[in-house]
Design a protein around this nucleic acid. Structure first.
Lengths: 202, 202
DNA sequence: CGTCGCATTGATATCGCTCAAATCCGGTGG
DNA sequence: CCACCGGATTTGAGCGATATCAATGCGACG
């Protein structure tokens, strides 16, 4: 069914696109697409969270990206013939699927849309590189503080936890045990404050 | 001075841009721009290699990206008022600087150029996410093998070393000692072959 | 009320980091 | 031509931080 009320979007959305999206609801841990599937759509998260991941040979899942409400994912569907990773709903989610051919056509026709799309890609590139920088840090504490500095809002660098601490641990490339211990130590040292589902600097 | 003979480019390059680039030569370890500098150009590497990095509080340098010959860097100059990282020449290099305002104008006017630019951003995003995936791997051997699988060419996943093994170690988030030992072990186990300045799977 | 998953803490193992030293190699200057 | 130098490469020893395995409490949810 066409989507009638799009949420606030990070990009200028051509009117022509507003009727193009198909809403898809996903149960928790449901697959939106799989690595190797032929590409047919670009997606926008309406609600919930979709993670893009691959599976290592040992069977462990490695998250490449997490897309939250209002974020696009699988932008590469515009260039590639097949998906190169898996898209899995971390929670029960709703996504909007836009046929990639239509998006391509609109991008070619609408310079403003194209400009917004480029800005979006640039932001994602920045976020990915910030994550690279973070993962290059050797100590768990450094990674946590880097996360707060880059992702946190306000003078306290506050971050609202979207999911569980286990999810955050995966995002930081740590085991959840290490993260728990690191958070406890930082809190004890007075560097970090934990309140409810928020983290911030002291 | 305007650049007369551009190298083979990864993007369709509007004729209007061919006279816009200013060539800049950089000595080894010279700075192209610094974090916080006001943005005025997007760059293309003609020769050599430029690394984008930030400095951690302990003074260690963390590489966000390395741009080789024929690659653009600082694409975000189109959106941001200031550079968010440092650009340093790993070797003696030559780069072409394009005024960001002009590029912006061309992107708005030339849909084909815009399309190529988006594809370029998408590729870089993929590369960055592959690196995220790699750095999330816990063991040194896994990172090396992942690097060969994602960056290597041909059936043997061969990679030509651009710089030193120390550089590769930094790229993989390892100390050079660890990398040396890991390569030696993998070679001894018959998994990896090292010839001259190339690495490949056995 | 039982179960499941998250959060937390403890004990131990292990891998990579750190410090150190030796060798190799290309370049440089006498 | 050779001595010298600096950086890359390599190997060794030991340590420490994180991973791993294990156990428990806790809250949500059926």
């Amino acid at each position: 069914m066409p989507c009638m009320n799009l949420p606030d979007l990070p990009v200028h959305f051509p009117a022509a696109l507003r009727t193009l999206g198909q809403t898809i609801t996903c149960a928790k841990e449901a697959w939106v697409f799989r690595q190797g599937d032929p590409v047919h759509a670009v997606y926008l998260v309406l609600d919930g969270e979709i993670r893009l991941s691959r599976f290592a040979r040992d069977g462990s899942e490695i998250a490449l990206h997490r897309a939250g409400r209002g974020e696009f994912f699988a932008e590469a569907a515009l260039d590639a013939p097949r998906y190169r990773c898996n898209a899995i709903a971390s929670q029960e989610s709703a996504v909007l699927a836009f046929p990639s051919g239509r998006i391509r056509a609109l991008l070619a026709k609408d310079p403003e849309f194209a400009g917004q799309w480029m800005a979006l890609l640039t932001r994602q590139l920045h976020a990915a590189r910030a994550r690279v920088e973070r993962l290059a840090l050797k100590s768990a504490a450094e990674r946590v503080l880097h996360y707060l500095h880059t992702e946190g809002k306000g003078p306290r660098c506050e971050v609202a936890l979207a999911g569980s601490l286990k999810d955050l641990a995966r995002e930081l490339g740590l085991t959840h045990e290490s993260l728990y211990r690191t958070l406890a130590r930082l809190e004890q040292e007075g560097v970090l404050v934990r309140t409810d589902r928020r983290l911030g600097l002291a």
